[in-house]
């Protein structure tokens, strides 16, 4: 059976350190203004403490990628293992993909005049290595998993604050953050 690679984003473990996002820039040598992975603090309506719980998001490597359908030059490729690859060399920078992705994964690089996005470090996966972001997570909050064999009963596909797009069927799975019991001494 084929693999279907995905990111498992464990928001219970995530400490919002941004190491994943910086490791992505470091390995892929992104321009200062470009990010392929970003760490988003959850709104206080979802997690009541400001900037204390996060989703680390990059491309979700959808089953039926909107970017791929929107691209007029065939610059997107869906690999058998689920990874959605963008080919910068044929991209004409029309930004159809940027506008069609509900998760904001492809971004327009104004300097280079093309779109770009996370490729799940396929060149690393193909060499038997982990994606740079996964390797960089110091707490195991970001994992590379195979959805076809994933056995994680707490994993959810569409947590609060993350657009629910069943037709695209994004591969990313989430584990929700905990809330500690609190004793707040009064001043």
């Amino acid at each position: 059976m084929n693999k279907r690679y995905a990111f498992l984003m464990n928001a219970d473990k995530c400490i919002g350190c941004r190491g994943c996002a910086m490791a992505c820039k470091n390995f892929n040598r992104l321009e200062p203004s470009m990010v392929w992975r970003q760490v988003y603090p959850l709104a206080e309506s979802i997690y009541p403490h400001r900037e204390r719980a996060f989703y680390s998001l990059a491309c979700n490597h959808c089953d039926d990628p909107a970017c791929l359908r929107a691209c007029p030059t065939g610059s997107y490729e869906k690999r058998e293992d689920g990874i959605v690859v963008h080919h910068q060399e044929t991209c004409i920078g029309c930004t159809n993909c940027v506008r069609s992705c509900p998760y904001g994964a492809p971004r327009y690089n104004a300097e280079e005049k093309h779109a770009e996005k996370c490729s799940m470090c396929r060149e690393r996966i193909d060499a038997g290595l982990l994606p740079a972001c996964v390797q960089a997570c110091p707490v195991g909050a970001l994992e590379l998993v195979d959805l076809n064999t994933l056995n994680e009963p707490n994993a959810v596909q569409f947590p609060a604050g993350y657009p629910s797009m069943p037709r695209l069927n994004p591969a990313t799975r989430f584990i929700l953050p905990r809330m500690p019991r609190q004793i707040r001494g009064q001043s």
Binding site: I15, G16, H49, R52, A53, R178, P180, Q182, I183, G185
Partner: peptide, 16 residues
């Protein structure tokens, strides 16, 4: 302070 570590704990005490 309710730190990032506190958010990951089972219990948090805010001490003066």
């Amino acid at each position: 302070v309710f730190t990032q570590t506190a958010a990951k704990a089972d219990m948090y005490w805010r001490v003066k």
